[in-house]
Design a protein around this nucleic acid. Structure first.
Lengths: 353, 353
DNA sequence: CAACTCCGAAAAATCGATTTACTCATTTCT
DNA sequence: AGAAATGAGTAAATCGATTTTTCGGAGTTG
């Protein structure tokens, strides 16, 4: 039982040492599980530890080593299920290896990303899991390279010449979406994306286009790409529909795009899947309880997190070799928001609002 | 310009000191902004700092003080918008004061909650923001009290005899929901909740019931309360409807309950608001883009975070006085999922699945 | 029996800052 | 003028561990 010290300062290794009648070095060895300690002394140490409720101070413990047992995680935001689950996973994996995870949100800003990184460098973190705002070529990755930091890039990346990367296999998933939509008879499809995340978006776009065109050379694929923010995307989308464009299906290349598409459908009084079909990259819990349920590409969060931490720790332990670029396979959940064109009333441009 | 040190170890305060031709103590004073330093020496220090790219090592800097400049945050989960926004806010507020936020997820487990707390105690965090899994009377709060930790409890709490608490004003919000539903003519309303979070749930429940009964003494209020988990709630809800119960409105007292209610409506082919009205405690981004948009109580995340950090730092700085229990007002967004009973086809127990 | 190797443990150095105590000069006050 | 107060700075102690070095004694060897 170890109470009674309460608010006063906690027992240090020296307190344990003097209580056990040994030196601090011996206590340190016992705690580290070194075998060259006389069993009798080890027992005295254990007893003292028990009586004083002693626990190693991780801060002091990390002081001497060049790399502290801290992993930094930088995510663009914490508000979505994807990054929420990602942080949960990363934290759990770091903890399993005796590391502390310090997570920070770059709030979709590259400037902040770099600031956070500098702070983590100050903390001398052993490694960083960076989900860049834009892609692998931003200032954050440069900073990491310039300062010789150990890290792994995830999510909005494809490959890098210095860091390992782990992301969802956007191209393959998009190809599958293409197969499904073409098979359902869609021949006029709108893709909605964000230009900033260049490589990933391109992979999703090309993955879709290549497969769609192969299966149906006559398919018409329109693309609405906003530069950086979501609101401009809404405006562009509105303009696109205002021109009278009437695709039979929309494939949103990212989560917020799915929200925007849905709300634009609402404005016009279009219902899925009768008036238009919808598939979104990235799944969310609500998508299966709404009516209709929204079809989505499910990213393998756990695998991405596990793989990222795996390769990160291998690098921390000094493993060499060229950086690897992992792509983890997604699942595509075709739900009610996808149907065949023309199977419903297809009410046309009625505007409800 | 400070590059060129790259992977080798970073400059320490002694490196700066010798380059500037002063002692480490002087460098420390300059960095801390102490005025009793000759301007000339201060300048030499600044120059050396610039040239070496020196930055204080927060770990070493914290070594001596009893309370490190770290704030711990423990949330039940990271996957929901509410806690995601909360962590983002808390991180931002901690950073503003020069503190580092270490966030951890208890994953809805009180056992884990206590483990995390023990680890944070090891880190000698200056303070903890705890959003308990259950309520303010769990083992985690006990641990904090037993060890004299500084902290503030948020979200699923009402008040405590030791710690300050900050949460949404559940009762007032629920009273407003009651007013709205009664005004719309509802006289048979189902409340859906989770028993584990006793006090908060009770506040929402009582807040609703009191006001509803005052305005319409003839109202019938049913309650389906699951003990701990969400799946049992689904089963109970299914059983409730299977009995032939047919309330005209459902008020879910927590987010997951809203999801469950919606999916049960789906199973039976009921649409909002024609067949049944729905209001949920806790808002989410998707709720305004689905059809119908789901009415919800919006919790004041920013205010809760700001108030929590405010009072926490006051306590860290030694402010005494009895613990305070803050309740922050919510907003109620009445959206399309709420209508008047009998205004639609009210199709009865049609089962789609 | 002296020289040598091992073992286990203690003493001391180290990590990178902060803080205390103390040393000279200057001022300031009486 | 002499005492006290202030200024500016340094050396050393400190925080709580880990790691390196040193040391005493037991056991081996020639």
């Amino acid at each position: 039982m170890a109470h009674r010290q309460d608010q006063q300062r906690r027992a240090s290794i020296h307190d344990v040492a003097s209580r056990a009648g040994v030196s601090a070095a011996t206590v340190s060895k016992v705690m580290a599980g070194v075998t060259t300690v006389k069993p009798e002394n080890a027992q005295r140490v254990f007893d003292a530890v028990e009586q004083l409720g002693y626990r190693i101070d991780p801060l002091a413990s990390d002081m001497r080593r060049a790399k502290r047992r801290i992993i930094g995680a930088i995510m663009p935001e914490f508000e979505s299920e994807f990054f929420g689950q990602m942080v949960t996973q990363l934290e759990s994996l770091a903890e399993q290896r005796g590391y502390t995870l310090v997570a920070a949100s770059s709030r979709e800003s590259e400037a902040r990303e770099k600031e956070i990184l500098a702070r983590m460098h100050d903390w001398r973190v052993a490694g960083v899991v960076l989900a860049p705002v834009r892609n692998e070529h931003g200032p954050a990755a440069d900073f990491m390279k310039a300062n010789g930091m150990t890290g792994v890039l995830i999510d909005r990346v494809l490959s890098d010449d210095v860091f390992d990367t782990v992301s969802a296999d956007s191209a393959a998933a998009s190809a599958e979406v293409a197969r499904e939509l073409i098979a359902k008879g869609h021949r006029h499809i709108l893709l909605v994306g964000l230009g900033e995340q260049a490589a990933t978006m391109r992979a999703r776009l090309d993955g879709f286009r290549t497969t769609a065109l192969k299966l149906a050379p006559d398919v018409r694929i329109d693309v609405v790409l906003a530069e950086a923010d979501v609101e401009p995307l809404r405006a562009q989308l509105r303009e696109y529909f205002a021109k009278g464009e009437r695709p039979t299906a929309v494939y949103s290349l990212f989560l917020k795009g799915t929200l925007v598409a849905l709300s634009e459908f609402r404005r016009r009084g279009w219902h899925c899947p009768n008036d238009i079909s919808l598939v979104g990259f990235d799944d969310a819990e609500w998508m299966q309880v709404t009516w209709p349920a929204i079809a989505a590409v499910v990213q393998p969060v756990r695998q991405i997190a596990a793989e990222a931490m795996d390769v990160l720790f291998r690098r921390i332990e000094g493993e060499g070799g060229p950086p690897m670029a992992r792509l983890e396979p997604c699942k595509v959940l075709m739900r009610e928001s996808v149907g065949s064109p023309g199977s419903g009333p297809h009410s046309g441009g009625g505007n409800r609002q």
